[in-house]
Design a protein around this nucleic acid. Structure first.
Ligand SMILES: [Mn+2]
Ligand SMILES: [Mn+2]
Ligand SMILES: [Zn+2]
Ligand SMILES: [Zn+2]
Lengths: 137, 137
DNA sequence: ATAATCAATGTACTTCCGTTGCATACTTAA
DNA sequence: TTAAGTATGCAACGGAAGTACATTGATTAT
């Protein structure tokens, strides 16, 4: 568990008890989580704290936010050493319409797209929807 | 303007005054519109009516909904004869972080993606974010 | 050790958007 | 002309994101 503290420290986030718990929870869970989700797990903690923890994690590059089309922000841990801002590390996400879970497909990078003149892309979001591995098996 | 009535009729939507106005508005405007947007334009009409009009249009294949990552649903008219559900007609969208406008890039189709075993894709959403043509010019 | 300072958490409240239930007006068909 | 179906209006609800302010906790300097 010292690894988590180190990871947080390295990214400039003070490793408080709450933050370590949330990080641990997200690490064990292999799918993207929403605030409501975390809220249910850590019912004794305040929503705002959890909200701000996610925001802090995001700002410091510990998690990345995912827009899977449900209009609910979800978050997933970044791979160690990944730079989500850079095009090379942008991966696609899969949202299962059956179980409503969203996963990172970190191996599947978003292909480069040529845009019409005048458009300058700084970020990209690619979400596929359908039936996930667990639900189709 | 008879064209609009025909378009609505052809898609099984009764061409009421309100619906024609909304269609006309969306046709003139070349960017995706949100409900709030339409609400401001047609201030005398009720929110719910506008909301349901968009929903009806969507169900009948007259408009398609766009998730541009702002967590606000936006809508744009479908090209005549387009089948948004089909992979071949899935195009990408561009969201300008400067003017907050979202446009359809109907020429830019979403490339086919090979998924890991077990995943079955039925829909795709690709949004690029950055500076749009108007803002970069 | 104490006080001063800054960061993290808690409480409460607000806003925005999407959505639904039910009543009323309008349109179409018998 | 009546009845049935559809569209619109009115009112309210719920979820999620966000913020202001108070309080607690941890760090640092004196
Ligand atoms: Mn991801
Ligand atoms: Mn479009
Ligand atoms: Zn699933
Ligand atoms: Zn712009």
């Amino acid at each position: 568990m010292k690894e988590i503290e180190k990871r947080l420290n390295d990214n400039g986030v003070r490793p408080t008890a709450m933050r370590i718990l949330i990080y641990k929870y997200m690490a064990e869970k292999e799918i993207a989580v929403a605030l409501t989700n975390i809220e249910n797990v850590f019912a004794k903690a305040d929503r705002t704290t959890l909200y701000r923890t996610l925001k802090t994690f995001e700002q410091k590059g510990i998690v990345h936010q995912i827009d899977d089309g449900t209009h609910i922000s979800k978050f997933a841990l970044c791979e160690p050493g990944c730079n989500c801002e850079l095009e090379q590390d942008l991966h696609l996400h899969f949202h299962c319409t059956n179980c409503d879970e969203t996963v990172c497909l970190t191996e599947q990078k978003i292909p480069h797209i040529n845009l019409p003149d005048g458009y300058v892309a700084e970020d990209a979001n690619l979400v596929l929807k359908g039936i996930c591995e667990k639900c189709s098996g």
